[in-house]
């Protein structure tokens, strides 16, 4: 009986343990963030890798999402003559949901996995031990810049994604579906508030933290050679994506009420 309980309870205990470890890891990284040296150069390098190098993939995702959104909502709204609302719908969905979430997912796939793989490789080839041996804290040297870059860059990627997505929607709506451009813009400006944009950006900063935290954590705790690195990378992508979607619900519930 007790063994059966133990058997079923173990996964839950494991989940809680993992939660606790990730949280401790985050606290550790934050304390190392406020200790000198600041390592701005490394932060910038990570910002380039997380932010600048993800622009293309984020742009492509955003523009096509905006376009397909315009197309789909158009057919829906046409049934009761509300074609003018297509712009507002595209803009609201982009700024509130699709911009932040899709950016988070794409950056997870691009940069989160890279973090896990890079740090994981450094772990299995003793490069992390080497950092310790040279009196350089790897949390500060490797993890902190990635976390900072994730939190800072995601909002910028998101704002670009919002903009491009809306542009995509505009092109499809106005040029392909012949919605009056004036009405398209007016309705959009009417319905979208500054708060929608900013809340989306706050969300994306949270996603940035989640994906870089999980990437670093999984990489940092890699065991078992090349196979371990592969496993860590896969786990990172899966766990990050799931966490982003779950936290998206709670953040939305909390912010938009």
């Amino acid at each position: 009986m007790i063994r059966a309980l133990e058997y079923t309870g173990r996964p839950f205990i494991y989940i809680f343990e993992e939660f606790g470890r990730i949280f401790t890891f985050l606290i550790n990284a934050i304390t190392w963030m406020v200790r000198p040296p600041l390592r701005l150069r490394l932060v910038f390098k990570q910002m380039e890798s997380v932010g600048v190098q993800s622009i293309i993939v984020v742009l492509i995702t955003a523009v096509f999402t905006g376009m397909v959104l315009a197309l789909q909502t158009f057919y829906g709204f046409r049934m009761f003559g509300g074609e003018g609302l297509v712009g507002a719908t595209v803009a609201l969905s982009m700024t509130r949901e699709i911009g932040p979430v899709f950016t988070g997912l794409m950056v997870t796939a691009r940069a989160g996995s890279a973090m896990a793989a890079e740090i994981g490789t450094m772990r299995v080839t003793e490069q992390i031990d080497a950092l310790y041996a040279m009196s350089v804290n790897p949390i500060q040297y490797l993890v902190m810049p990635r976390l900072v870059a994730g939190v800072l860059m995601l909002p910028f990627l998101t704002i670009v994604s919002d903009f491009i997505g809306i542009m995509g929607g505009y092109v499809v709506g106005v040029f392909l579906l012949n919605i009056n451009p004036g009405i398209f813009m007016a309705r959009m400006v009417d319905m979208v508030n500054l708060g929608d944009i900013f809340n989306g950006l706050i969300k994306s900063a949270c996603f940035g933290l989640i994906l870089s935290l999980i990437g670093c954590y999984k990489g940092f705790n890699t065991r078992g050679g090349a196979e371990g690195v592969g496993k860590a990378t896969t786990q990172t992508v899966v766990l990050s994506c799931v966490s982003i979607l779950i936290s998206d619900y709670f953040l939305t519930a909390f912010m938009f009420r």
Binding site: R41, F44, G51, V52, P155, I159, D162, F163, L194, I197
Partner: peptide
């Protein structure tokens, strides 16, 4: 890296300002 990040951030801020 700094320059690239800088350009990116400036573009982001401009877009945000435009939309806002």
């Amino acid at each position: 890296a700094e320059a690239k990040v800088g350009i990116f951030v400036v573009i982001g801020i401009i877009i945000l300002a435009l939309m806002a």
